[in-house]
Design a protein around this nucleic acid. Structure first.
Lengths: 222, 222, 222, 222
DNA sequence: GATGAATGAGTATTCATTCAT
DNA sequence: GATGAATGAATACTCATTCAT
């Protein structure tokens, strides 16, 4: 099992192989239960090589977190068109988020579970990324308030709390969507938009938030 | 440090001391980093006694999860009066939830972080409790829909997703409230009710959800 | 090989067995080449027990140095009668020193070679003991000067240098005596007294230092 | 740090650079703690090149010992004029010895400490050199005895013991002189001549050995 | 009931050494 | 001639777990 044993690769390539193996192992076994032996074997290299390139288990884990955090943020960024109204932007970001986490479950486990559970240092690493996202959402909310010409100065902390709640709900739904057979990224995003934008009150009253006409992620037009 | 070394206590008492020590240690160090040595010392007993009563590290951890899950559910239950309207019930439940997690951070760390991060077996244990809560919330949502005489048959999966989102948002806010200086359980609950019940759309339009008149948790009347 | 595997000994006894094994291993293999595995096996216990009692390789080594340094100083002290003239005291001390190092070659290797070669911390440990001996010798030299009613104030540094030279010569002779077939502690001590007390000049002129009549270490009389 | 990376040097030069780096590293870190990586880096070459030229860590260490032993003996030889009386020869040899060890502390550490502490093979290498010196001293003592027309046949073993003691004292004083602020090679040599030639007895009686008039090491005349 | 004594099975990490280019 | 890539074999240290008393 593991990568085919191809000898003599340039360092950059080998490092990515190692990170792949590490993300998979950390994601499935957990940070502490993952052994460097297993990671090395899965990467198809000897343990000393892992240490030569990545220094230590901690450094290796940090490298995993950084790579995956960057990738997740990039995926979300790539999905959002900043010239659209706030709810559309949110909708696009959520779809990208749910799609990415569904496609990289081990990476998501590393970011969402493992990194938060094994020490401040690692947690800080994810927090940095998460803050980026929360800030993005916070700005969207503020923009929406401006667009609505109403309630323009919700207290800052209130907005922060709302963004936090939204991001938290998204994180939770990601796990739920991955675990529930047949829930697509699109459906998860729709559910969350309903919940977050319209609120349960409006929902009960039959006023759901409605997703825009088909608007493929890849095509630019509207 | 640790429990005072008092000899010859009834088994039930000793067990609770061990669980106290274990929850604290697991919550702070994490499941794997917590050593049985440390737990035994903190509990003020010898290691073999821990094994005699709790069998193994896994069993000990499971016992912690069960005890704290039960306690959390009980706390929420105690805060909710089932004869009130759905949003009032939700509001009360959230207040109880935020209050309890703020008062027992180690227990919350065990339930929310540690148990989910170290193997299916433990995760299943919390999932059981979480499902109980999600079910409760699901029923509240269904009840609200009925009360509104509208939209009475939201698809079941949709409701499940909404409940999941709500619970996830609550969990996230709990961490945020604990980490943010000066955010009380009441404020966290208010923020979440705004978010969940009114939705961002209504909020932006200046239609927040408003908490009921002071309604202390301890007094029955309204 | 190694100690007979006797189970369940009190801690103090086991510790001494471990130190015995460690001194032997460190003395023969050297500090770094000695493996904790080998020491544990030679001591007839498992490695974790060694760590439980002695904490780490460094602590174990330090414990060896301390025990053997104390033993060596005690042996020398036990051989010296402080009411005799200076040269007699020196003679007795040297005999005791050569006898002890000959009987405990591994301990001597630990003190003289290993401890000095593997880090300041260990070196300081022996230096403390060596200083005790150098001080003793320095006092003897000063006493001798006083007895001779001459040259009573040799510069302090000069006396220190002489003591250093004497102790160094003794250390060297100890290795030589141990390595040379048929050289007894008595002979080594005589050679050194000749060298140190009479000096080569007097020796050449036919004026050796002469050891006292048989004066067994145990009997008090002269 | 380390040698400047100059490409394409003749093998002989590269080897000396490697030996320089090795002596320094072995002298400071100790044989076992010194890593081939560090030595190669300090020498400014790649590790495989070190192996190509010097074969193995053991061979490298042996090469260091040989080079430094040869250099030390040569330095002593260069300082001695064989047509002078025995005590003058000894005095000159000691000055050269103390001067050389003071100027090459890492080399001295390799010869005096490291080589003796890490296995018979290396120890034998120094012993060979040391025997040369001991033999030289032995001959000096025998010559002195002849010059004095007295005591012409001290037992051979006795002379060997005396030479051993003298060399041992010198070795010890070298370490002491290097460690003690402000002790010059000349002072160390004087102290040792006093001790070895006059003996403590004569010293106490006010009859020290007196160094000859200024007799610089470089100028031939007397 | 309670514990001091003891260990099997790992884990991260390092190092001397060698190919393939 | 010179090196980047790679590893087999060890080593210090830890931990959950169990007897014998």
């Amino acid at each position: 099992m593991g990568a085919v044993k191809t000898k003599r690769m340039p360092r950059a390539v080998r490092e990515q192989q190692m990170l792949d193996a590490a993300v998979r192992t950390f994601g499935q076994r957990g940070y502490m239960a993952a052994s460097m032996d297993e990671i090395a074997e899965l990467a198809g290299v000897s343990k000393p090589l892992v240490y030569l390139y990545l220094n230590s288990k901690e450094d290796l884990f940090t490298a995993c977190i950084r790579r995956e955090a960057t990738a997740l943020v990039a995926a979300i960024r790539a999905g959002v068109r900043t010239d659209l109204p706030a709810d559309r932007q949110l909708w696009a970001g959520l779809r990208a988020f749910f799609a990415h986490t569904a496609q990289h479950p081990d990476a998501w486990s590393v970011l969402h579970l493992q990194a938060r559970t094994h020490g401040e240092v690692f947690a800080a690493e994810v927090t940095a990324m998460r803050d980026e996202i929360v800030t993005f959402v916070t700005q969207l909310i503020a923009a929406a308030a401006r667009e609505a010409h109403r309630n323009p100065d919700l207290p800052e902390r209130e907005v922060a709390g709302l963004a936090e709640a939204l991001v938290g709900a998204a994180e939770s739904l990601a796990a739920w969507a991955n675990a529930t057979e047949g829930v697509t990224a699109r459906q998860a995003a729709t559910t969350l938009m309903n919940f977050a934008w319209s609120g349960l009150g409006d929902l009960m009253a039959g006023r759901p938030w409605s997703p825009p006409e088909e608007e493929p992620l890849t095509r630019p037009g509207g």
